[in-house]
Design a protein around this nucleic acid. Structure first.
Lengths: 330, 330
DNA sequence: CTGAAAGCGCTTACAG
DNA sequence: CTGAAAGCGCTTACAG
């Protein structure tokens, strides 16, 4: 292949015998360009294999056509199917709408990563993949009025755009579901307490326990990091403290995975039903344990968030809050 | 917070009583700027909360400080721990070296996605996350001499930068390892045949079978998509066709996961040893089956590839081919 | 050690 | 329907 020198808009303009302005308008599909010039321009573009420089366009109209994301510093969250799936949803939707997805990483400090992204003009908007209690990133973005979507909900602001599952309700229904299946003593294993997801799901669990008048004590609750090993340990502790537990609600798929590993490893078979968020993300394995899966549609959440962000960027009307449906299966 | 109007390099220059050129040089840390002016400039930048526009810089010096990646169209590969882990490695390393990671998605056609990325000037180089046989993307990038790293190896070119595991050797050693553990009849489950990874690993497997003079027949080999369900089915078929199989080599962690699910689901306990690539990515679960894990260091591969790409971009000397170590465990 | 000026490749009022 | 010109916010020879 010939090494051709860069063909710019000027090259095209010259070749087509028009001005850069006209080429630019043709590309932007402005209405008031005659069809004949338009056609000629496109023909030349094709022939010269011209591709507009996204960078130059960005500088001129301050639109990068990139949506930003920050890569979580802790491996646990990154490796979590929820993150993966929603990331995929975001990237896919972005692609469909002509955007690319820019991932920033900045070690331990998420807010700094965001600041760098935003200040560099590299992105038009950002998506925050999770809601941490007292999150300074939300604060920052809101202050400077930079377009962003929060996946999850904010405890402090009700004037920001969010996409979320109704976690309280979902976990209440899930627990109720276990009750419906005959469980009398239901434990809870959740992720870190500083994530909104966990607190909401815990609240739903407690609501259900109360509604149903079930027994409850503090040693029926375990909270830990979002990973497998801790899921394993938590299940162990729970069962050691409560031999008669016949149900357990788990808020995360990695934790679930560890918990089921523990269960599989013990010799005597337990009569226990597990209700877990994202159980299906791990496996379609019908183990010897009854598993009730709750699917929050992580991919959908990602798609929705990205769709919404781009709608905002394109000045379309969107709702402040969107709640995505969940499904209980099993 | 005040809504301040955009502070540019000009603002800083004016405020510091110097020219834009000097500010630019101070930021770029040019040697021949006096310490006093440098100091003053930084002080002003700080005070004005100035952040250079990455876009403007990009346009001026044609360096985007972005590395590009294309999101695989098939969910299987995206959901594969290998992809996840190496993606993370890439993004992390990019971040450390001052780059961001741009993810393009373009439906079914990977080459088009790459073309768009490259032509838009949005990235300085790209990383191809997997090597497919007869990949036109490699062709394209090589033709236009655009900087890129291929994770895996190319069957057709030996003049491109690659980062890879010695898959033939790894799989041979793994199979040998099973032989060492007493296996006499070892099956093989691999991913799609059009991926270099699969063919290499298959070759290694066959080499070992030959070396050790083991029995072999075609129904001891299963090849399928890289996913759990197919791993499950493959294991089933393999065992139905070969009841006396006492070992199996599996090339992929998702496939492994499905296979082990099948094994757990059958009632009679099989006496079989499993050797699998990325078995540990799935679970630390010590199941009732003996599992030999082979860890190719996906994260390392990602880190390495990115490090190498950026080295190339920064005109450092790098080797054409890098082979990353693997570890056999168990 | 520092500045004036051209240039990177686009977009977009403004004018016709 | 189209063009000339200014501007987006930087970098970098060139000159001093």
């Amino acid at each position: 292949m010939e090494k051709q020198r860069k063909v710019t808009m000027q090259t095209v303009a010259d070749e087509a015998g028009v001005s850069k302005a006209t080429v630019s308008r043709a590309i932007g599909n402005y209405p008031d360009i005659s069809d004949s010039t338009k056609k000629k321009i496109f023909e030349v573009m094709e022939r010269l294999n011209y591709h507009p420089s996204a960078i130059a366009r960005s500088l001129a109209n301050r639109i990068s056509k990139n949506v930003g994301l920050v890569l979580p510093a802790d491996d646990d969250f990154f490796m979590n199917p929820f993150f993966q799936e929603s990331l995929r949803g975001v990237a896919k939707t972005a692609g469909k709408r002509g955007y690319d997805t820019l991932i920033a990483y900045n070690g331990k400090n998420e807010t700094n990563a965001i600041k760098r992204l935003v200040n560099s003009n590299k992105v038009d908007g950002v998506i925050l993949m999770r809601s941490v209690i007292g999150d300074s990133t939300v604060n920052y973005l809101r202050d400077i009025e930079f377009p962003f979507i929060l996946i999850g909900k904010s405890e402090e602001y009700d004037d920001i755009y969010t996409v979320d599952t109704d976690n309280v309700d979902a976990c209440r229904k899930l627990t109720n579901h276990l009750v419906g299946l005959g469980c009398k003593k239901i434990g809870f294993i959740g992720g870190k307490r500083d994530s909104m997801v966990t607190t909401d799901r815990y609240d739903g669990y407690i609501q259900s326990i109360r509604e149903n008048g079930l027994y409850f004590s503090d040693d029926m609750v375990e909270e830990n990091e979002f990973n497998k090993l801790e899921g394993y340990m938590s299940m162990k502790k729970l069962l050691e403290a409560n031999g008669d537990m016949d149900g357990v609600v788990i808020t995360d798929s990695l934790i679930f995975s560890g918990a089921i590993d523990y269960l599989s490893s013990v010799c005597e078979e337990k009569d226990i039903i597990i209700g877990a968020f994202g159980a299906e993300s791990n496996s379609f394995n019908k183990s010897k344990y009854k598993v009730v899966n709750i699917d929050v549609g992580s991919m959908k959440i990602g798609e929705f968030s990205c769709e919404k962000l781009i709608d905002i960027l394109e000045k379309k009307d969107v709702d402040l809050t969107d709640i995505v449906d969940y499904k209980i299966e099993g």
